[in-house]
């Protein structure tokens, strides 16, 4: 939804260059109190995660009898929480981990492909009603997904024209199609809009000269546009990845216990075993590890994507 100049992303990761003028302004603000305030905020923001992270490695008896900060005076570590949460018969998070992967990959790849194609057509092809259609898609970003859930669920269960129901016991693909489709649909308006913005910044002469050389739209799209769009596609891809991986609403509305991702299972555990912190702490970090890796390794793209657009459906 939000769109600011994507170039801002470059500023984000810039190393401090030659002594900037505004440093003096900054220095004026930087009293010892300011530094202390910054450290306090940083510590407050880190402690909750750190606490649960440490807890996930403590033996169950320690967790229930003393605070996690006691680990510094009385260290004892174990991996058994992770072992139990991943393989234990009552939690089996490995199954849900697999579900999360199976849901997420197509739910990222498919909408981005469809949106890139559509964005290309909206920028570089001429057809009647083009602008009207684009504005309509742009406007549909305001629809919160809650408004669509119930009718969409009914469409999946009782599709018109005797089409195959995508939900229910005999659902094709193990019931994953409803999730893939829903995530695709909800991603499209924002994806088309953002990619359209990026694509219209590409100089038109590039396309024109390729046309003159006899290249068709398909060649231009695959040979010129895709490579040029790679950073934008990566940026949106990471956002979409995190949305889908971290999603709960779509998963519990359209999924079933056999297709639940980690978030849905974890929310369940939080309700039924709310005081078993040895399970919840390890479980939480099992669900966090992939987004954290993605975040830490691709932070540059992530920030760029965030600066370009952050709210959807």
């Amino acid at each position: 939804m939000t769109t600011t100049n994507p170039d801002l992303g470059a500023l984000e990761t810039d190393a401090p260059g030659p002594e900037p003028v505004s440093t003096s302004a900054h220095r004026a603000l930087t009293s010892p109190w300011a530094s202390i305030a910054a450290v306090v905020i940083a510590v407050l923001w880190t402690i909750p995660t750190l606490g649960l992270f440490i807890t996930s490695f403590r033996p169950e008896s320690d967790i229930t009898s003393s605070g996690w900060w006691k680990i510094f005076t009385n260290p004892s570590f174990t991996m058994s929480n992770y072992d139990q949460v991943l393989h234990g018969s009552d939690t089996k998070l490995t199954t849900y981990f697999v579900n999360s992967i199976v849901i997420t990959l197509p739910a990222v790849i498919i909408p981005i492909s469809i949106a890139t194609l559509a964005a290309y057509a909206f920028v570089w092809m001429k057809f009647p009603g083009r602008d009207l259609l684009f504005v309509a898609i742009f406007a549909l970003q305001i629809v919160p997904i809650q408004v669509t859930l119930i009718p969409l669920l009914k469409l999946y269960v009782h599709p018109p024209l005797n089409l195959m129901p995508l939900a229910g016991p005999d659902a094709p693909g193990g019931g994953f199609y409803t999730l893939w489709l829903s995530h695709t649909i909800f991603a499209l308006p924002l994806a088309i809009y953002l990619l359209h913005n990026f694509m219209s910044q590409i100089p038109g002469e590039l396309i024109e000269s390729a046309r003159v050389d006899g290249a068709g739209h398909v060649q231009i799209f695959t040979r010129i546009m895709l490579p040029l769009m790679a950073p934008a596609i990566a940026a949106f891809g990471i956002l979409q990845f995190l949305w889908v991986w971290n999603d709960l609403l779509v998963a519990i509305t359209f999924g079933s216990p056999t297709t639940f991702p980690l978030t849905a299972r974890l929310a369940e555990l939080s309700g039924t075993r709310g005081n078993d912190w040895f399970l919840l702490s390890a479980g939480a970090f099992v669900s966090l590890v992939i987004p954290l890796i993605v975040f830490l390794s691709l932070q540059r793209y992530f920030v760029r994507g965030l600066l370009a657009g952050s709210v959807k459906g």
Binding site: W45, D247, L248, A267, S270, L288, P291
Partner: peptide
């Protein structure tokens, strides 16, 4: 960092 974490987490 919290931005990368699910609201459930």
């Amino acid at each position: 960092l919290p931005m990368a974490i699910s609201l459930v987490g």
